[in-house]
Design a protein around this nucleic acid. Sequence first.
DNA 1: TTTTGTGAATTGCTTCACAGCA
DNA 2: TGCTGTGAAGCAATTCACAAAA
Lengths: 229, 229
Amino acid sequence: MRPPKQLSVNAPMAKTDHIPAPAVKRLSLYLRQLETFHAADRKTVSSRELGAVLSLSDAQVRKDFAYFGQFGHPGIGYRVLELIQRVRRILGTDKTSNVLLVGVGNLGRALLAYRGFSQRGFDVVAVFDADAKKIGQKIAGPSRLVVQSLEELPGVVSDSKVRTGILAVPATAAQGVADIMVAAGIRGILNFAPTVLRIEAGVSVSSVDLAVHLEQLSFQVGPSDPQTL
Amino acid sequence: MRPPKQLSVNAPMAKTDHIPAPAVKRLSLYLRQLETFHAADRKTVSSRELGAVLSLSDAQVRKDFAYFGQFGHPGIGYRVLELIQRVRRILGTDKTSNVLLVGVGNLGRALLAYRGFSQRGFDVVAVFDADAKKIGQKIAGPSRLVVQSLEELPGVVSDSKVRTGILAVPATAAQGVADIMVAAGIRGILNFAPTVLRIEAGVSVSSVDLAVHLEQLSFQVGPSDPQTL
DNA sequence: TTTTGTGAATTGCTTCACAGCA
DNA sequence: TGCTGTGAAGCAATTCACAAAA
């Protein structure tokens, strides 16, 4: 299955045969764990170790990386720092990218205060809200962001080359704001509103529904009232 | 090297042969959509319609429900209200359940203000933080909650029959707090800290890593700088 | 040795297609 | 007719197992 495809100075992401979505999801988890290993000064790690921490088989780990090229060193394992850099490149987070946020309610403010985004290469460069009372408000913290009107969104997208937007508005407003984002040129939306967005093909949507996660737990934990039908 | 296989789900319904995890996930999405249909006064819905909204095949929808029993009516479809009730029972959200939250930072406050939880049958009955300065603070809103010390957590768990906890603390504190939760009898943890929790079998964990979702989008959208190595 | 990378085998999930019922 | 429920088929993802490399 592998033609003599040496990847040295070539092949940025050449082999996009077809990558399972679950593998891409795990890539983020590997990256996070690799960064933990790096912080602990580990130089190399084997597929077995990395898998054990994440409750995955060693074969799973190796196959996931193999979708993207040759990353490991037989007899040694994977070099932590090298693998971090290559995974970041695959995910497109090796360079910081600009994102915008719409919806400065409780959730929006929490997301703005969340340090994890900038640590992982995402920089919130503009904030919008539909509520006229919020426009002009300064966001607490070092960001110096000021809440802008939605009307200014298209201009910001083209000026700042923003490709990704975070949607933290009520469910009833989500579709309308999403339409504005897409029309302005946004190519990916991280949606926190508990509703289905209808979006044209070519634009990616990732939805996070907090209640859904609690329901999944509820199912796994089982009914508190074990009999009953 | 096999990942641990826990989960001894005690069968609430007769036919708990083995249910695919993706099917359970979709159940939450079906429920949300059914509630939307109900709000629009729809009395029945076919697998085709329900699937179309969620971008799923009709067969997928029927098979998912079939894992749990006979829900539909040939020639009619599914009765919306009846299906809502049965899905809620399956997920264990037909009766409100008590949950607790640890970590009253930005994210924790946003989660406390999120109405979605109570709408879906979850009631946050207690809030904890490790920071002595926060203990005793009242939480804004109608809940009348007061931030408590972690030392009081075990008592609250047994008194209020809390089985689920939301973890909204920094990554460095997450494992320690999780251990306290588990020791106190918590059976399910919704974890917002970007770290892997090591938890004994029999306790479920669902992790939400906000940065991971952005990374997935980043991969799907592709590099902003398409050439380059 | 240890450990990767990968074809082959296996497991699991989704779709197909149709019997049966309203 | 319209639609569900379900075995069978098809496809996708995971695990197995081993050659090759250090």
